[in-house]
Amino acid sequence: MAKSRNNVITHGLSGLIGDLLVFRQRAGKTIVSDRPKVRVDNPNPDQLEVRERFIKAARYAKAAISDLTIKALYQAAAKAGQSAYNVAFADYKKAPEIEANPNYNGYSGQIGYQVEATVYDNFMVTAVKVEIRDASNALIEQGDAIQQDDVSKWIYATTVANPDYATSSIIIKAYDMPENETIQVTQL
């Protein structure tokens, strides 16, 4: 791939020239490359899944940058040579991560117990929800966790007494801007 800098003839040029060359603009530079070749293959199910996820990420990124408020958020997070589209695309492809091995040893079914979750994302965690379920999976309580000063920490204070806490489970659900969901279930 050739790169052209400050060339009067190719400056600002983009698109396909004949059947041979493609010109692109990236970070103020004109990039010249061979025309992409059309792949003729029989993809396996895993490849089809990756392609579908890629298409969905592209659709999300395009929609995200069409909203000026969301575009500004993504642009602010962009590094040198990245666009808001690139950041939005990457955000769609990566779901939030909930720190493993939570410690709920202090939970004894009392009201006011603070369920703490540490959640990370490559861009922004938008919500963390907590559910407590009994042994038969019936919902005991649920609610939104509150983000703390340390933006990766979220806390939910229990609101319902749970006498059967020893056989309960605590479920943490984390969401990001593209509404990717990560779920962590902890059996007590």
Rank of each mutant, 00 (worst) to 15 (best):
A90I: 10
M124S: 06
E99W: 05
Y120D: 13
S152L: 09
S4Y: 10
A2C: 00
S4L: 12
S83Y: 00
A76G: 13
E141M: 13
G112K: 02
P43K: 05
G81F: 05
P45M: 01
F54H: 10
K173Y: 04
V8S: 04
L73M: 10
A166P: 00
Y60S: 06
E99A: 14
A64D: 02
R133W: 03
I70T: 12
S66L: 05
E131A: 05
V115R: 07
K93R: 15
R24E: 13
I140H: 10
N137Q: 09
F123K: 04
G112F: 02
R53Y: 05
S108V: 12
T69E: 14
D121K: 04
D164P: 01
A174H: 06
L48S: 02
T69S: 12
M124K: 11
V8R: 02
I183N: 06
Y74K: 06
I146N: 03
Y74F: 15
N122S: 11
Y156A: 02
Y175Q: 07
I9W: 02
P102E: 01
Q142N: 14
D149H: 09
E179W: 12
S4R: 04
T118V: 12
L16C: 14
N44V: 01
I70A: 11
Y107M: 03
D164H: 08
F123G: 00
K129E: 10
K79M: 13
P96N: 03
M1Y: 08
I70P: 03
I17S: 15
Q75F: 04
Y156N: 04
I146Q: 03
Q25G: 08
S66D: 10
M177G: 11
L48N: 06
T159S: 04
M1E: 08
Y60W: 15
A61D: 02
S33V: 09
K29Y: 10
Y175S: 06
T30I: 13
V50Q: 15
A161E: 14
D134Q: 14
T126F: 07
K153M: 08
I65Y: 04
A166G: 00
D41C: 15
R53K: 12
N103D: 12
D121S: 04
N103C: 08
D134W: 13
A63H: 07
T69I: 13
T10P: 04
L68K: 13
K71T: 03
G109P: 02
Y120E: 13
A100R: 13
P96L: 09
Y175V: 08
D150G: 10
L21C: 05
G106A: 06
E97V: 14
F54N: 09
